[in-house]
Amino acid sequence: MGRIDTIVFDLGGVLVDWNPEYVYKTIFDKEEDMHWFFQNITTGDWNEEQDAGRSLAEGTALLVKQFPEHEANIRAFYGRWEEMLGGPIQETVDILHHLKYKTDYRLYALTNWSAETFPIALKRYDFLHWFEGIVVSGDEKTRKPFLPIYQTLLSRFNIDPATAVYTDDNVRNLHPAQELGLHTIHFQSPEQFKKDLLALGVDL
């Protein structure tokens, strides 16, 4: 194995705590009603279409047309989206800070994120400016786990997969990276992430 020289981060769930429950726990009295809403109305599949480039207005209008009785709660998803940002996952930010300022690793990010909401995160979190480059699914009109977005990352930034590692909290998103030859880490906690980086020979 060649020396790791590039580390690619997912953002949500790795560096940024994002959770729609922060909003919907203030809307629904019962957790089971909130989870029903996520499973049947504002589903993960629906949200990922906005991550892949569909406009927030179009995605919202589509659901309102399908479920007019839930209009107010549907509109809250993007109307109150900023409240879903819980803050940085500080221990991972600390690892990123060390890599940025104490080592010579190349640092990139690959994220499923709407092009319309990502500027909010860029403004809020200074550490998002520590990367040499970020591939945002909404800008690319595709998303993880589809292979083209990983190929875009590698080609745009001239990354050699044999000397790069990619971390993501969603195992599904690791498989295409592995297919392209990247080392991968399933992010479960900052402590485990650090341990797995050390196992790959990364200087921490």
Rank of each mutant, 00 (worst) to 15 (best):
V16G: 11
T167N: 14
V14D: 04
Q66Y: 09
I4T: 03
Q39A: 11
I185S: 02
T26M: 13
V23D: 04
H70M: 09
T26Q: 15
I159T: 00
H186C: 04
K194D: 09
E140H: 08
V93Y: 15
E31K: 09
F193N: 12
E83D: 10
T42L: 08
L11C: 14
A72V: 12
P145Q: 04
V165A: 00
T26F: 03
V64Q: 12
W46Q: 00
L85I: 10
E140W: 05
S155C: 12
I4Q: 07
M1A: 07
V23S: 09
H35D: 07
G44T: 09
V8M: 11
A61L: 10
D160P: 14
R124L: 04
D33K: 12
V93N: 15
L174A: 03
F38D: 02
Y125P: 15
K65V: 01
W36Y: 10
H98S: 14
R106C: 08
V136A: 06
R106F: 05
P161S: 02
Q151E: 15
M1C: 06
T167P: 07
F146E: 13
W130Q: 04
H97E: 15
F187V: 10
P161A: 09
I134Y: 07
V16P: 05
R3E: 15
W81K: 10
A76I: 03
S189T: 14
P190D: 12
W18S: 00
F9A: 10
L200A: 00
L200K: 10
K65F: 03
P68R: 09
T142Y: 00
F131D: 11
P148S: 04
E82F: 07
H97L: 09
I95L: 14
D169A: 00
F9L: 12
Y108S: 03
L15Y: 00
F127E: 13
S189V: 02
Q192F: 08
T103C: 06
A162F: 06
A76S: 12
Y24I: 08
G13F: 04
L182W: 11
W113L: 07
I7G: 11
L174S: 03
E140T: 02
L110A: 00
D169H: 01
E91A: 13
F77R: 14
H70C: 04
D51E: 06
L110R: 05
Y22L: 08
D29Y: 12
I41C: 05
S189K: 11
P20I: 09
S55Q: 14
K65M: 07
I89G: 05
N19P: 01
V202I: 07
F131W: 11
P68Q: 11
D94A: 08
L198H: 08
Y24M: 08
K30D: 12
P20M: 10
D5A: 07
S189H: 14
I134Q: 15
L182Y: 10
V165Y: 05
H70N: 14
L107W: 06
T92D: 15
S137W: 08
D160Q: 15
G181E: 11
V64C: 07
Y150F: 07
D196T: 04
L11R: 10
T60C: 04
L15F: 05
G79E: 13
